[in-house]
Lab assay of single mutants.
Amino acid sequence: NQASVVANQLIPINTALTLAMMRSEVVTPVGIPAEDIPRLVSMQVNRAVPLGTTLMPDMVKGYA
């Protein structure tokens, strides 16, 4: 099963992502692949992401 990127904390809108904000977890539906975590660092979210939410490509500016 593919691990996805999950929010490790509440991430406010327009926040630049850091490693501490993300974790890898096997979830359904599948979100951004966990191997993309290094690429996500310093990218901004375009909405508030609650703790435990799977990051989807449309939630991260410049990812999709």
Rank of each mutant, 00 (worst) to 15 (best):
V6G: 01
V49T: 10
V41I: 13
A48P: 06
S42C: 06
V26F: 15
E25W: 05
T53C: 04
V26Y: 11
N14L: 11
N1S: 15
P57F: 11
T28Y: 08
L17A: 00
R47W: 07
P29H: 14
L40M: 06
V26M: 07
E25H: 05
P12F: 08
A64V: 15
D36I: 05
M59Y: 14
A64N: 13
D58A: 05
P38R: 05
T28G: 06
P12R: 10
Q44N: 15
L10Q: 11
V45R: 00
T54H: 03
T15K: 04
A48I: 11
V30F: 15
G62T: 06
I13C: 05
V60I: 11
R23F: 04
G62H: 11
P57S: 12
L40V: 09
A7S: 09
T53H: 14
T53N: 12
T15L: 06
V6R: 04
N14M: 12
V41W: 13
V45M: 08
T28A: 10
A20F: 15
R39N: 07
Q2H: 12
Q2G: 15
V41C: 05
T53Q: 10
E25S: 08
Q44K: 11
I11C: 03
S4M: 03
P57E: 08
P12D: 11
P50N: 13
T28R: 02
I32C: 03
P29E: 14
S42H: 10
N8I: 12
V41Y: 08
M43S: 10
P38S: 10
L10S: 11
I13K: 09
P50W: 13
M56R: 10
D36L: 10
S24Y: 09
V49C: 03
Q2L: 12
M21P: 00
V45N: 03
L10P: 14
Q44L: 14
P50M: 13
I32T: 02
V30K: 04
I13W: 07
G31H: 01
V30P: 07
G52L: 05
L40G: 00
P33G: 12
A48M: 08
M43V: 04
I37V: 13
I37Q: 09
M56Y: 05
M43Y: 15
L10N: 13
L40F: 02
E35R: 03
M21I: 04
P38A: 09
V26R: 03
N46H: 11
V41T: 10
P33T: 10
V5G: 02
P50D: 13
M56V: 14
P57K: 09
A48W: 05
P50Y: 13
Q9K: 09
I13T: 14
P33E: 04
L19A: 08
S24I: 15
A48S: 13
M59I: 07
A20W: 15
Q9S: 13
A34W: 10
M43K: 07
L51A: 10
K61C: 15
L19Y: 15
T54M: 04
A3Y: 12
P12Y: 12
V27T: 12
E35N: 12
T18M: 11
G62E: 13
A7V: 07
R39E: 04
D58K: 05
M59W: 09
P12V: 11
L10F: 09
L55I: 15
P38C: 08
L17W: 00
L40T: 02
I37S: 05
S4R: 02
G62W: 12
P12K: 14
L17V: 05
I13S: 15
A7W: 01
D58T: 13
V41G: 03
N46L: 13
M21T: 04
A16E: 06
V27S: 08
A3C: 04
L51T: 13
L51H: 13
A20I: 15
P29R: 03
T54Q: 04
L19E: 03
R39C: 05
M21L: 08
T28C: 05
M59A: 10
T15P: 01
S4L: 01
P50H: 13
N1R: 02
V26L: 07
Y63V: 04
G52F: 06
S24W: 08
V6N: 02
M56T: 10
V45G: 01
L51V: 08
Q44P: 06
V45W: 00
M59D: 08
K61G: 07
V49F: 02
N46A: 10
D36Y: 10
E35D: 09
I13H: 14
M56L: 15
A7T: 11
Q44M: 13
N46V: 13
Q44V: 07
A3E: 14
T54V: 09
R23K: 04
S24A: 14
A64F: 03
Y63Q: 04
I11Q: 00
N1I: 15
N1Y: 12
D36P: 01
R23G: 04
M59L: 05
V26H: 06
P12E: 07
S4V: 02
V60C: 02
A16K: 06
T53G: 13
V60S: 01
A34F: 08
V49L: 10
I32M: 04
L55R: 00
L10W: 10
M56D: 07
K61N: 07
M22R: 00
P33Q: 10
R39V: 05
M43N: 04
D58M: 15
N1P: 14
V27D: 02
I37F: 03
A48Q: 13
Q2V: 08
V41M: 14
V60G: 00
Q2C: 13
G52M: 10
M43A: 04
P33N: 11
Y63D: 03
V30N: 15
